[in-house]
Design a binder for these strands. Structure first.
Lengths: 136, 136
DNA sequence: TAAGGAGTGCAATGCCATTGCAAAGTTTAG
DNA sequence: CTAAACTTTGCAATGGCATTGCACTCCTTA
């Protein structure tokens, strides 16, 4: 497991420090998009700022993507190994309004709609709000 | 024009106070999603709190909907008269990362993707980021 | 092994949404 | 017509979360 995580970092040219391994592991374990707060809770003794900066680094290296779920907090989810966070690679996110869990529904690719002339699309973020299977 | 706005309010059983007329007019004039800050700037002498609460009322009465564009600020856009903010009525939003304008692309209906078993969708919010025609 | 750079932690700041409370305005009952 | 009740508004304060500044530590490299 630790190897998998280290490889993921190496693949994106991010030095595998202790903190980075922890943050990435937490994100992989939870299998859902996590907010800074949630990560802080999971990684009990880690500093908020460090996590924040780690996530920033991860974003720049396409290791994670931000999810805007309208909860007021930005959440973070792990990218696929071959992801470049381009338009076509954006997938669906689902926010359960009961338990505040944000799911990355990678298997539900989203259609890029036609946009008006003169507009250029770069990123897509499709969010569905509702209730998840655990809450129903 | 004033009549149009008053009618919109009446239609949703919202008392047409001075502030409410102003806020709704501003939103209609601009033809794009506005943040609280932007509204505060447009309505020079209006109090931030009042605008906030006005928008809250509007939301409850389906006069406006919130737009989460990941800019960190919630934006607000006017609903169509027959809108109930239900899943099917959600439309596309476009954030220009250059001028920070958020457009409501009402003519680009969005497809509701199939979601996993056990999940129930309630609202949809589809955001495209890129650059708009004015900035290209 | 000393110097430079990267990573980390603490404390402080700042931005924006939201709430408490009191004043002003509006409606309603008597 | 008027007092009571409710609604709307404005000011001030609070609170949550993201972000930054600075100093310390660790790791790399010449």
């Amino acid at each position: 497991m630790k190897d998998v995580i280290e490889n993921k970092l190496k693949l994106r040219s991010v030095k595998p420090t202790a903190m980075r391994l922890l943050v990435l592991q937490a994100l992989l374990n939870e299998k859902k998009a996590l907010s800074l707060n949630e990560l802080e809770t999971i990684l009990e003794h880690a500093d908020r700022t460090t996590i924040f900066r780690t996530l920033k680094t991860f974003q720049e290296k396409f290791l994670v993507h931000r999810v805007y779920d309208g909860s007021g907090m930005v959440k973070y989810a792990v990218c696929d190994d071959d992801c470049n966070c381009s338009l076509q690679e954006n997938h669906l996110h689902f926010l359960c309004t009961k338990c505040s869990t944000t799911y990355c529904l990678k298997d539900a690719p989203i259609a890029i709609p036609t946009i008006p002339k003169g507009f250029k699309a770069k990123y897509a973020n499709y969010l569905i709000e509702g209730s998840c299977s655990s809450c129903n």
